[in-house]
Design a protein around this nucleic acid. Structure first.
Lengths: 218, 218
DNA sequence: TTTGACTTAGAACGAGAGTTCGCTTACAAT
DNA sequence: ATTGTAAGCGAACTCTCGTTCTAAGTCAAA
């Protein structure tokens, strides 16, 4: 399906969006079409309906047909909410990373951590999980015991990405920047004065990419 | 006004609350009374209406009369929202910390960062601000360039708290654990192998307490 | 048993609210 | 001038949905 050419929003449409943001902020449920009429000075519900459909088409809005107040802001509303990420265990040097098989599964309340969307860096929440750091082994990655690391589950990586890898020959988990040098993998610590290590590609099992780090036990 | 005696919620009322949480999570607008009927197996809208009024009376719910979907959860809603914290500048070794005088003032959209409530560690948002780390000088605090540090504005500290201090004699800002040893202040780096420094209390100007650290430029 | 408070069901009412349709206006392209 | 498209208005229609009313069932206290 071809993407529709992005027309700039009309003044009415901007006013509708603005009002919806304010209304939802205040009431915590969406306005009716007639609410929008009154707030924007538009005389006819059909005009609002018309412009709402435009906004849906522009991807800024979602509607539930035939439902009162069946309006959702697409863009901004999500940004003001937290996202629940499963905190599935710990990560330490001497154990493999506990990668979840189905991230979308049901978790207990206690095993979920609420993070702001920025920490997911645009990734699908269904691919994201978090681990708490155990032990002092991640110091060369500038990560402390107790830090929470947000990962995207993946088993390949691009050069320069920080990944959690299981080094099967050493029986060791580590966090390093990943560089594929063809016949070998260079794993570069985050700490500027630490030297890289080199491993054979067959020994380097990528468990996930580091998206962000949270430190609350300062 | 005397507070009504707190009766325990009935199973129906618990089911209604649970369903409302799930529904709002999923649809981002509240359910109708008939939605609740279907979800909970209650046969009559009047029964739902009856129990909704009970929940309002118990302070768990708000209703807007005569409005479709005019329901709001009272308690939990805020917990799932982000808090905007002013990101007012950078912190580096060679400059004083730019402490804001009025945190509650108006900030531009770009100067606000949205964080989950946990990062404030219970502090009043009006006391909290954030700074981005510039330069490599915070490595001994296990903090990298680009990290965002969330502070509570305060000029005194308890032992063991991590604080940002301006050392007036050295002309230097640093992040250390604070220990008051009477005639001197011991400032302990986060990195376990680094030695502490000792300063005279008069030279040690506390700028704020570190609440949390966010690293998104991994 | 009787009483009364609490809870449930069912139905009906009426206002709330989304949708559709015909008609008009504005404006640029042909 | 004509055509076509986008935008607006007003009214009517129909379904949604909150509210209210009556009646009945439950259960503990008197």
């Amino acid at each position: 399906m071809a993407k529709a050419k992005q027309k700039p929003l009309t003044e009415k449409q901007k006013a509708i969006l603005k009002f919806m943001q304010d209304f939802i902020e205040q009431h915590r449920f969406p306005p009716t079409i007639r609410d929008i009429c009154n707030a924007t000075g538009i005389k006819s519900t059909s005009v609002v309906n018309y412009n709402l459909n435009k906004l849906v088409n522009a991807g800024l809005l979602q509607r539930s047909q035939r439902k009162s107040r069946g309006l959702r802001l697409k863009d901004r509303a999500d940004l003001h909410r937290v996202i629940r990420v499963p905190l599935i265990g710990t990560i330490g040097a001497s154990e493999p990373v506990p990668v979840p098989e189905d991230i979308g599964a049901h978790y207990d309340e206690d095993d979920l951590i609420e993070v702001m969307p920025m920490l997911l860096r645009g990734c699908d929440p269904a691919e994201v999980f978090a681990l708490r750091v155990k032990g002092q082994s991640m110091i060369d990655a500038m990560i402390r015991e107790g830090d929470i690391i947000v990962f995207r589950k993946q088993d390949v990586a691009q050069d320069g990405e920080m990944v959690a890898v299981w080094l099967s020959e050493r029986g060791e988990t580590t966090l390093k920047y990943f560089y594929n040098e063809g016949d070998r993998i260079r794993l570069q610590p985050a700490h500027p004065t630490m030297p890289p290590i080199y491993v054979h590609p067959a020994q380097c099992h990528i468990q996930g990419r580091v998206l962000s780090v949270i430190r609350i036990n300062v």
